[in-house]
Design a protein around this nucleic acid. Structure first.
Lengths: 206, 206
DNA sequence: GTCTATAGCGTGATAGAC
DNA sequence: GTCTATCACGCTATAGAC
């Protein structure tokens, strides 16, 4: 790409302009979906003409790719910390879920894009490396579940692959209704969800 | 529409052709998304040319609408039965979830379309009546939750609107990985999910 | 009922001036 | 870096023959 140099100030100025454009992309793609968002929409929202976007990006697909790259970098820096810690399985699982919830809070648009366009990422060859991270997430969480069953912290009578999907989907779908800065904060959501995930919704004295 | 008559055999022949076309639409739209599915795709999959589809449907949007109408008719016939029964709140909630899971099993493509295009349904004036059913579902389930807290079957320390979203999303997202006719049947999924929803994933002796 | 043919428009992307 | 201008293509939908 013609716009990428590797010189200090000039490069970082350009990077930050790029990043601001990416945030605009994320907001629009989160709201309207990738297929229904046009490069003209993005240009208009960013205050330039669609053609000018191609100074920063090779294609509409590469805008999507950069959004996901940025999000995955954030997520995996933190997932790796939790996974390599010596916490108990239950505490590790709580940690993983907290990281995911923090992403929903701080990178709301990007997470929505990641969720909404996951099919596209899986099917398009270009995004194979991005889609592979979903398998990494599954490996990490099912590993924690197995360990927790071994220690007796988790129930042994559940299919691990079903429990994994239950956990993954209940947490990530929060992004579809949670609004950063709204009345209900992410800490309150985390408290309720962790409580329901671990203890269920039925009364203990039922 | 020119194709709608109200005469016995001729009409029902046309209806069934229409229904078969709708199934093809649902399959494609479920797989590729509404925006990325072209009427040419649909025509090709159904074995006719795109223009010929307009003998049966006014527009691409009306194809989507008919898919949703058909699904909602199935769902609400059964939801109403459960809601008006005199089962306990917990049994009612189980019943509602069973209906949803049966739809995921029997109307898999249609449910995926409903889930994937929910944004479009909410935002497009044309689909207001369809989108209103989501509010009905919320009213039904939160009512059951309130009753169950009153009887002591459900935990009283949870925010009802958060618990509702937890339940709604964990159940409906099953459609994104469940495959009808696969190794894991809907009864097994139902058993695991009801068990996790009501009792959580933590060991009771934890 | 399905076809041929195409209107009319919006799309992603590019070339080159400034 | 952003603009003007535009290309080449794909899209939904329609008109009218058969």
């Amino acid at each position: 790409m013609a716009s990428r140099t590797s010189q200090g100030e000039e490069s970082s100025y350009r990077e930050s302009r790029r990043d601001r454009l990416l945030s605009t992309c994320a907001e629009l793609i989160a709201r309207k979906g990738f297929a229904s968002t046009t490069v003209r929409d993005i240009g208009e929202a960013a205050g330039l003409l669609s053609g000018s976007l191609y100074y920063y990006f090779d294609s509409k697909e590469s805008m999507l790719e950069q959004i996901i790259v940025k999000l995955q970098a954030y997520l995996w820096q933190r997932y790796d910390e939790v996974a390599s810690s010596d916490l108990s399985p239950r505490a590790k699982l709580e940690g993983v879920l907290r990281v995911s919830l923090d992403a929903i809070d701080q990178y709301n648009d990007e997470v929505r894009v990641y969720q909404n366009e996951s099919k596209l990422l899986e099917e398009n060859e270009r995004f194979q490396e991005r889609a592979a991270r979903s398998k990494d997430f599954e490996r990490m969480v099912t590993g924690i579940l197995r360990d927790g069953i071994a220690t007796g912290e988790f129930r042994a009578d559940l299919r691990i692959e079903v429990a994994f999907r239950f956990i993954r989907d209940s947490v990530w779908t929060i992004v579809h209704w949670y609004r950063p800065g709204g009345e209900l904060g992410i800490d309150e959501v985390a408290k309720d969800y962790l409580s329901m995930l671990f203890g269920g919704i039925a009364s203990p004295n039922g």
